[in-house]
Amino acid sequence: MNEQLSASRRLDIIRHKGRPTALDYIPMIFDEFWEMHGDRLCGDDRAIIGGVASFHGTPVTVIAEVKGRDLEENQKCNFGMPHPEGYRKALRLARQAEKFHRPIICLVDTPGAYPGVEAEKRGQGEAIARNIMEFMTLKTPVISIILGEGGSGGALALAVCDELAMLENALYSVISPMGFASILWKDASREREACDIMKITAEDLMKLKVCDHIIPEADGGAHNDPNQTAENISSFISESLQNLQIKFQKGLDEMINSRYNKFRVVGDFDEFPHSHTETDEQ
């Protein structure tokens, strides 16, 4: 593992042209994958794909954000930036997984939800909000893995889960480093500097209790050995599914409570004693 790499150095690694995407990993990790299309409302977004798969013989639902490996693929999948129908397809498939008691495995890899006119018209904000809310109470285990870029609400819409893992070089942030630099410093060119102060590496996010596991990549980055990296992802999924199965057996309510609490505890504030009780009239 390249433990000491800075966030900006990791940014270079996840932007490497040869970095494997969900399209590479799915056939390496799952024995079968049957893709299901469409949100049943409006269309079929190619930035999020999903379907039923078999993981070492266990049926699972896979939902993945897709980045293209070349320009042609990128035009199809919109550079991994989903529209509302992508999130709504994801929710449809998640409900289907719940119905058939299949665990859900989300592969997250997006710069963010698409900022466009049609996306706004069709309720980008509402689509993300609804996924976040509905995933919180899904009655089936959910595992999310950040493969490369976990950008903002567009990533969170597939990352409300029981266990969150990140590939060693993956970054997960409230906004892209470029967006951060341009909003806070009005200077998008300070991207690398933003990257290094934002606390967005897997190690940072372990400390902030957002990430639960770090999945090692091949030496120098996943592109150096996609198969090795896929194997590492597989062993994480095996282990995680076993853990969640045990949790699941203790009772559904407990599992859903612990998912809620995983997010509930994140926050950094001070309060003076007794402030949670009702206070006097202003």
């Binding site: 909000a129 976040i132 109470t137 942030s173 409230v174 951060f180 934002m198 902030l208 957002v210 994140v266």
Partner: peptide
Amino acid sequence: GARMQEGIVSLMQMAKTSGAVARHNE
């Protein structure tokens, strides 16, 4: 929107608040 100065912790507040709405709904 999100409070940039709080980084990922800000993003997680979306999950927290929406989770509370989910429970209120139930």
